[in-house]
Design a protein around this nucleic acid. Structure first.
Lengths: 356, 356
DNA sequence: GTGAAAGCGCTAACAA
DNA sequence: TTGTTAGCGCTTTCAC
């Protein structure tokens, strides 16, 4: 008879009932403050609960068909402040509403993403928040068929009326950033694309193209380089741009992390930011204001996006018949010190320009 | 008759039993591959499970007295890569062992910390991981009394044999960093203390002092400034140091985040790093290698610490009678570009030194 | 307003 | 080897 079950010594509804001298269904009523319980009875029960230190057993409650009060959150990883900020927003909303947050890290592995979704929809959670999902097709249908409440953050092209989405104005943000560079006199602007599987990458790329087109500037394929939203790839992309015979005078990275990689490469090459090369990012993660020079970037209201996503989900839980919503949040250009007016020939590295 | 219970349409053990033509306890046996089930029977059951897409209901299993397969993780916040790295390590270990991760963010609010611990120990989770806990006294005793498996990360002074702890060699790391600066010729080394409530802050401070003492250097209280592990406070501390009549030639911050604040302040003051002022940090978070100049710092194996903490906890779950362990992981000095040999008068700002 | 009783999905004796 | 049975703690009819 070892003390194996940690849940022994646990006060149940029955103990409270005995202590209060009522039936345990009455205790249940008090706990859920449902129907009308006589005030004195309620008080007696409440008192007993307090005395005994009763805490409701979620497992049992959830098994019985109620809510588990758990929300699953699926994220690619937690090692960067982008995701961290969104989680922070989600967490603050969930905590305020007494929900628990179950975290699942997919590490961008598609199989994991699907597998987690299956697990989560089966009793583990009441709803699901998917951050930067990449494999949506694989499970979105079953989510919809099961009518399992879910919200996608940073993903939009879902036709079904049941799915809610939250994202920022990616196209507009990229358009604004590009136009800003154009207004600074830049004519050759390198663009580092984000992860192709993500809709936001495509939208931002489109915004970049549109701004160039609107300004009557050519779209040079040489100036569009594939990226993956991570720093090393930004580094490589910048090196590619800098090695071009006619390098760009400004580089626009699809997110801040990539932009940091760009800054590394530019600085390493002996060029200065922004005097020689302007750099602009996207996201405005915490570090953007901390690097030197401060990174000019397009701000996404990350924490707010997380909060809104959680609100959407919780609203849906309370009212399952609500249709899916699509919330788009405004981006904002944050001007710091990484961009300057274009000058002739600044894209050409010092040692080369000296030769002429 | 609305379709409210999302868990309807859910395949249970009974469905599988019917499909396979066996009793449902046999199915249970197969699921838990317990006792000896005849291979053909097992195959038939497995087949039925697959056909029906059966997934075990954790709530029910856990209610029955088994494991919930959930580990609670209590963190101060998720907005920085320090915590992110540790969580990453925890997550990889838990995922590999089929455990789920319930995340609780305390935002350094003591009341929240205690409240969460109470909730978690009641049925929500099988074990608890506490990262950078600050309010340990308030609940450690109940954790121990309940024999609730838990591991503290970055906290050590717990006498009870039941509590396991993981941390790095904080004292040694700080000692090494300080000695490194001394060997570079620095005689006046400013130190920015970490959050006072955390043992690691005290240990690091002690390491700093010890290194100075061992080198026969005086400990100037003016050069020890209170911090809180966050960037703004590092900024303020550096400004304080720089405004001293006889400023330090090197600044050692109790963590990287503070060190970044120091770098901001130093750079803003027109001084150069490392030529004018050397800066050294602690942690080696991701960004340390990314800032310019690269931050010399004391590396903590963060992801590894998370992994080990999870391992310790899981081991304990499998064998509840094991005593608590205390794991200390080695720090390592990572030399980058933010420190240089001391030169005379370098701590004095340019405009001042020019006057002499 | 309150109590009795059924059962959520599962595991683990105990039988057969 | 397999089936029967009794709950885990809770919510929720349905009586009273």
């Amino acid at each position: 008879m070892t003390t194996r079950g940690r849940k022994n010594s646990s006060i149940t509804i029955v103990d409270v009932a005995r202590e209060a001298g009522v039936s345990y269904s009455t205790v249940s009523r008090v706990v859920n403050d449902n129907s009308h319980v006589r005030p004195e009875t309620r008080a007696r029960v409440l008192n007993a609960m307090l005395r005994l230190g009763y805490v409701v057993n979620q497992q049992a409650r959830s098994l019985r068909g109620g809510r588990s009060q758990v929300i699953g959150v699926l994220v690619p990883d937690v090692g960067n402040t982008y995701i961290g900020a969104i989680i922070q927003g989600i967490d603050s909303e969930l905590a305020a509403r007494q929900y628990h947050l179950m975290l699942y890290t997919t590490h961008r592995r598609k199989t994991k993403e699907s597998a987690y979704v299956t697990t989560i929809t089966r009793g583990m959670a009441d709803g699901l928040l998917l951050l930067l999902p990449t494999n949506v097709e694989a499970y979105i249908e079953s989510l919809q068929k099961l009518q399992f409440p879910h919200v996608l953050v940073d993903y939009q092209h879902v036709e079904n009326a049941f799915t809610s989405t939250v994202q920022s104005t990616n196209w507009q943000g990229a358009y604004d950033a590009t136009r800003y560079l154009i207004e600074l006199g830049h004519r050759r602007i390198g663009y580092i694309v984000g992860q192709r599987e993500m809709q936001c990458s495509l939208d931002r790329l489109a915004g970049y193209r549109a701004a160039l087109a609107d300004a009557g500037l050519p779209i040079d394929p040489e100036l569009i380089y594939p990226g993956d939203f991570y720093r090393p790839q930004g580094y490589m992309a910048a090196n590619h741009f800098l090695s071009l015979p006619n390098p760009p005078t400004a580089i626009f990275a699809a997110n801040d992390l990539s932009a940091f990689g760009v800054m590394d490469a530019v600085l390493n090459s002996g060029r200065r930011i922004p005097e020689d090369i302007s750099v602009i990012g996207f996201d405005d993660i915490l570090e953007a204001g901390h690097v030197h020079p401060g990174l000019t970037t397009v701000r996404q209201p990350l924490e707010e996006m997380g909060r809104v996503a959680a609100q959407l989900l919780l609203k849906r839980l309370d009212n399952p018949d609500l249709p899916g919503e699509r919330v788009e949040m405004a981006t904002e250009l944050i001007v710091r010190d990484s961009c300057a007016p274009a000058r002739e020939g600044v894209g050409i590295p010092p040692e080369v320009s000296r030769r002429y």
